[in-house]
Design a protein around this nucleic acid. Sequence first.
RNA 1: GCCUGAGUAGCUCAGCGGUAGAGCAGCCGCCUUGUAAGCGGCAGGUCGGGGGUUCGAAUCCCUUCUCAGGCUCCA
Length: 643
Amino acid sequence: MATVRLPDGRELAIEPGERARDVAERIGKRLARDAVVAKLDGELVDLDAPLDGGGEFEVVTGDSAEGLEVIRHSTAHAMAQAILELYPGSKLTIGPPIENGFYYDIEVAGRITDDDLPRIEERMREVVQRDLPIRREEVSKAEAERLYEDNPYKRELVEGLEDGEITVYRQGEFFDLCRGPHVPSTGSFLGAFKLQNIAGAYWRGDEKNPMLTRVYGTAWPTEKELKAYLRRLEEAKARDHRKIGKDLGLFTFSPDVGAGIPLFLPKGEALRHLMEGYVREVQTRHGYDHVWTGNLVNEGLYEKSGHLEHYRDAMFPPMVDGASRYRLKPMNCPSHMTLYNTEAHSYRDLPVRYAEFATLYRYEKSGELTGLTRVRALTQDDAHVFCTEDQVQEEFARALEIIREVLDTYGFEDYRVRLSLRDEESNKYVADDERWARAEGALRDALDAAEIAYEPVAGEAAFYGPKADFMAKDVLGREWQLSTIQVDFIQPARLGCEYIGEDGEKHTPVLLHRAVTGTTERFMAVIIEQFGGAFPLWLSPVQAVVIPVADRHLDYARDVQKKLAGWGFRVAVDDSSNSMQKKIRENARQKVPYLLIVGDAEAGEGTVNVRKRGEKAQEAVGLEEFAGRMRAEVDARGANGQE
RNA sequence: GCCUGAGUAGCUCAGCGGUAGAGCAGCCGCCUUGUAAGCGGCAGGUCGGGGGUUCGAAUCCCUUCUCAGGCUCCA
């Protein structure tokens, strides 16, 4: 007789015909009630699945990641059913669970807009109410093809499957080609969902294919979790860098200047300057030299480097001057290699480390521009290290140290490393297997030597080499690709970079590309959201505002401002005609770290009354003592900006 | 670039075929203030641009620009 082994090691004998649900039932009533699906020998199965063969058995509930995925997947089916009922003749394609929810790509008969979502949701609730049993059915390839006579998308999916592994799930009239598993019925575990938005999506993600209608939704085991998620979305919206950037007067865009070209207001520029100054300081300390290579480059250089071939469409069109064609500079590597080539190099000179805060121009497609995270004018904190193959590990470690220090300062403590490799099938990479293999090996060795865990991902490499990308989580748990380190065995050879080795022979240096914050613009967007606009003192464009209690205290307020400014702080006096209360309110909303209230008492004693951001407490402090405290706080560069 | 939406005063938004509205900000007064909005007044918009339908368009249609959410792309 077959037996199943439970996670706690217990073994249960299986009666013939017994199903997953029955075993769950035997383990415990409550568990059976919470069971979404089950797991047999590591594979998710429906509660209806027979257990004749026995094996490792586990009940999967909605509070596990896998159970949640099933709930979301089944919710996607309920939505598909609702849409088919409301828009007869629509063709389903794929509808997977995703992080926080699900989507379904459908060729809709007619048109769905955002206004239709409530209607679809309502129909979904009806489907849930009907409590239709969800049944799995194995079908032959021929049957599947017949089922999808008029649906070329599903037929294409069927073609990729083998006879014997094709299953269809049915609930009432509705059926869908699907691997499953699913919840037992439309009435169980489904209900805490919300449809979110409509988007276009190409069939199979290929822009040559027809565009389908994608409906996104979110789904949770309970109404409470759904509410909590929606609240989190609201919070993220309140921190949106575009909103805060406007509220705090940091940056703006104007169609008169051009889409994707951010314009920085005085406070935003101050922020940029502080961010860049900090990275510059760290880089200098680590032996990098800063260079400057302009904004315009003769196109011929990009022909040699290979960039023209790979990125022509993402460059602004050339400016023609007689026989010369110039491009707005879209990347720095060729310029830095040109700098390298202006001198002869001995192995004794290496490594040569060139860093540049360079504003680059990339012709991003109009539809993909987004706030500061995706722009056409972007400033990279880019650097290129020319070194020998033997030096790669040490230089990698050095770059890593810079990255760690900087990310740590900004409070990004949780990050993972993605090893971006080429996809051997794709033709977008330079073909040079030997060099690719060496570059990949060097990168893996460097990562291993630094004891850094990473996960390899194919198809994410640059055209000239593999990358180690640093994915950092912000305070809301969202992940951003910030830093990158790349190993390049290809470009230096193309541009004729050389050094004379110990052996007196010419050699080609290895090129390390690396960026710490990535781009100033995007990183600014990320830290605005990370801090919610409440920047730590060292980063705050305005560090303190002096607020006089009444106009007669203005002279003393200006005095305080002058002294603090003289000591190197960014301080303003609020001399508007507003009441003191209102000044406090307005400057608090501007997230100024310190408000210094001065009235008769303070003017008399040479003190300031300090109100710290986010706190109500007040404290009278001598001006010099306060300046000392600020100095210490700035020097510590704490990341505790957030309230 | 493609799909679906949205653009009304500096900002947030109402109006959705019949003479352009509110709050905040701004300006001008009064108030001179002790820790998150003092009071009153004034000014401000060819309703993103262009074209069309209509006796009449912010409102309906076309087109273009910009923005949003996605798709694709990201040196």
